[in-house]
Structures are given as C-alpha cells and as structure tokens.
Amino acid sequence: MRIIFAGFGTVGQALIKVLRQDEQRIVQAYGFRPQLTTIVDSQGSCFDEAGLNIPLVLKTKEKYGTVAKYPGSGRRNDDSTRIISDSDAEVVVETTPTNFKDGEPGLSNIKTALSTGKHVVTANKGPLALAMPALLELARHRNRRLCFSGTVGGGTPFLDFAAKCMPGERIARIKGILNGTTNYILTRMENSSLTFQKALAEAQKKGYAEKDPTNDVEGFDTAAKIVIIANWILAKSFSLRDVDITGISKITPRKLRAAQALGVKVKLIGRIEESSASVRPEEIRADDPTCVPDTLNALTFSTEHAGDITLIGPGAGGERTASAIVRDLVSIRKEYAV
C-alpha cells in the first residue's frame, strides 16, 4: 500500500511514528506494508517511489520546518492536488488544518484523490463538515473508501460503536459532549468560578486549547462532529449549514452557579433530532450520564428498543488520532487488498 500524506503536522508525524513502531505487527497481522511515498506540507513536498526514509524525513522536518528540504526529491511550493492526481499511490492520508469556511486545502485534496481513484483517510473535519454527503457519494461512485475514524472520537470510537454494536437498532436521537476543550473550560469555570477568559487561558497553557480557539469555543468543532455522526450513523444528508450553532464564549460563572443550585450543569451539547441538529450550551441534569467533567467526551444514543446508551471516554490527541488512522488503513487493506 502506497500512501500520500497531505499535511505533516502533529497528527502526520505521530502517524509516521506509529507506523514505524508497529510495522512488524502490521505486516504479520494483516500482511501489508504501508509505504509512505509522498509527503506534502504547507511549503513543499518530497517523494520516493520506493518509500521515503522515515528517520530522514522526520529529521528534515524538525531541522528545516518543511519536507521540501528532503535530500534529492524535496521540492518547494508544489500544488498538492496536482501531486495527488499525478501519483500512483493507493491511499491519501489527509491531515491539513481544519477550515470551516471553504474546507480548503483538504476539500480539494479529498475530491482529487477520490476522483483519481484513491482511497482517503482523513483526520480533517473541515471538508466533511461542509460536504460530507457529496464526498461519500463521490467515494461510492468511484468505488473507493472515504475513512474518517480520526475525526470523531479518535479517542473513543463512537462511530465504530454505533456501526458495529448496534446494527438493526433504530437510533432516534443522539446527544453528547464532543469537544474536550470547551468541556474543560466549562468545568473550570464552574468549579473554580473562573471567568471564561481565565479558563480559556488556562486551557491554552495546558495545551488543551489552540492559539486561535474559535473553532472549539464557538462550537464549530462540535458541529462538525455532529454532521459526521448524522451522516454516518443516521444517514442524514446534513452539512454544517444545517446545524444551529451557539458557542460558550458568552457564558458567565454566575450562570453556572445558578444552574448548580438547581442541580443542573451547563454543557456544550451537540444534538441530532429527526430533522434538525444543534450545538448550544444546554442545562442538563447533573446525574445525566452524558454529563461528564474535564476533557472527557460522552455520547448518548437514544434507541427505540434498547433505551439510552451512553459511551464515555477521552477526546482525541495526536497519537490517538494516529491510531484511528491506522485502523482505517487496515480496514481499507482488508476490503481492497491494496
């Protein structure tokens, strides 16, 4: 299996390490050797038909900040869609930064990959949030896989749980906490009476929140996950514009305390109902199983016959996301023998 990396940041680098560490096990268990032939980052690309030298790639990236300096085949300012369409590789792993405005560069990368007959594994939620029904249709049309385990519950396999453990069950509604950063902020605001700004600063210091926290605190990250879950588990043709979104930046410690007095907590809840979806701060009972603290995530499936089922677990990080991507690669291998 020949693989192109589009994006080579935290997740990309974690993935390459996991693949190297687990190489023997993967070869033995699944009989295939993932071969990284092309890497594209924001400044350029490198390429080796026979497989890139991984330690050298990592060293180059660390030293120069870009793979464009990779000895021999490193090149600057390449167009990633051209590289993808010209390549003979079988799989594209897409981990460029999330963009909820137009999905780029990920959206074009994924479209190009599927159109030219390559499987795609993405950790990038942007393209799915904006165009998931279209991308799934394109994948079906081209008979290729579009995998995205790393986008939702890279840490806790919500998607696989619903798909594999609940077939035949009719899931009527889904609600949950899907963003560790905002959950941490709300927990801190409530427990230590911090203002939103203070709690955010603390989350940033601890590495839970990004420098630009907009996507997390304004609810877009949760909404993107809701879109993916709605499409994949409930077969709804939703995209980001169908989700009614409110973030947590306007919440005050006073409001949280008032809620506490009533035995409820304010959480950023993503919800999928019959024909609508929303992300907004909601008051939920403190003893509701969905009501988890800190950076934890929780998702409750309301089923017709089995009642409510809640899955609780950690959110994603670079390495967990990398391991979700490996799972996807293995499942592509099983289905297509590439």
């Binding site: 279209a134 799934l136 249709e137 049309h141 043709s237």
Partner: peptide
C-alpha cells in the same frame, strides 16, 4: 445525477 455532489457544487 450524483445528487449530493451536484447539490454541493
């Protein structure tokens, strides 16, 4: 028509 792709575009 591939409707979802068409709708998106």
């Amino acid at each position: 028509p591939l409707v979802e792709i068409s709708y998106h575009q």
